[in-house]
Design a protein around this nucleic acid. Structure first.
Lengths: 165, 165
DNA sequence: TTGCTCCTCACGTCACGTGAGGTGGC
DNA sequence: TTGCTCCTCACGTCACGTGAGGTGGC
């Protein structure tokens, strides 16, 4: 891991492509792809072939990765990054960014609620399966649909999909 | 919306492709694609061309859609659906299903935490933007990196990506 | 005749995955 | 010589999106 001086005498850490991937939980391919798409930037090393990234690019990569998981497309992320430069002054940029990010935040909140519902449903279904683990009825697997155990409340959809056949 | 008798005299509702899409928050294309992939099943109507789905298939579609949002691939969902049929008895099926779903539930819980972190970070950034809306400094946009307002704790990554330039 | 909903190909797209084949320092 | 990490094409994949062109009842 190489270090070098930067402004104000702070230690500037340079990260390799592999370090970027590991520290962000992504892959080599993703790091290179995002660089090619202009989402993060690198300087080529002395050898002229290996990339080196300043630590700031790692933070950007981490947030981009999180936003992708939150459902934003790369184009939407690019648009957000370009938003400030397209505004004539700070007030305008701040209010446009606010409007856009408020929508995103609402979308993410909805997504969180949806995931919590799935998690709850899977938990109910797992609760039912605890009973099924001790099941010795000979009508398995065809008769499970008629079994009273599968009436576990909150697990209806999981039962339809995974258990009733 | 057509109805017809089924066993036990219960009303059997049949849903069109469009109704399936609307009620599950997916698209016509997705409904047809999942049917082609064997994830849901339909009967062809009297006219021989339009699909009709029993209500049970809607519930399956809804859960499949939720699981997709939760990060599972269609292959992983197919494997879960096929799991029971590949087991010799109920106890075995229940414990294999439990092991698999516990992993999924943990993954979903991790995903929820990740989304909550992004949401918190965006909220901190939005908090900062409230100050920026009243900004009249002439150094916009290049000087924002040196502005003390951008030191808002918890919004470091969002600042790097969207604001400091 | 217009409008609505459904249909079947079939090519396009997005965000990477996955080899193939090669380099460079310990 | 082996092993590790990095590299550049370039084709493949997954889960649909998106027209093109057509049907059928109000």
């Amino acid at each position: 891991m190489s270090t070098g001086g930067s402004g104000k005498g702070a230690l500037q850490r340079w990260l390799s492509t592999g370090e970027m991937a590991r520290l962000s939980g992504t892959t080599l391919r993703t790091v290179r792809f995002y660089e090619a798409e202009g989402l993060i930037t690198s300087r080529t090393r002395e050898d002229g072939t290996h990339r080196k990234f300043p630590e700031r690019e790692l933070h950007k990569l981490q947030l981009i990765s999180d936003l992708r998981e939150a459902g934003l497309s790369l184009q939407e992320i690019k648009d957000l990054i370009a938003l400030k430069a397209g505004c004539p002054n700070a007030a305008r940029a701040a209010s446009e960014m606010t409007a856009n990010l408020c929508e995103r935040a609402t979308g993410i909140a909805r997504r969180i609620e949806a995931l919590q519902r799935v998690h709850t449903e899977l938990s109910s279904f797992l609760e039912m399966l605890r009973v099924c683990k001790g099941c010795t009825h000979p009508q398995f697997p065809a008769g499970c649909g008629e079994c009273e155990v599968t009436a576990q409340p909150g697990a209806e959809r999981a039962n339809e999909l995974f258990w009733k056949n």
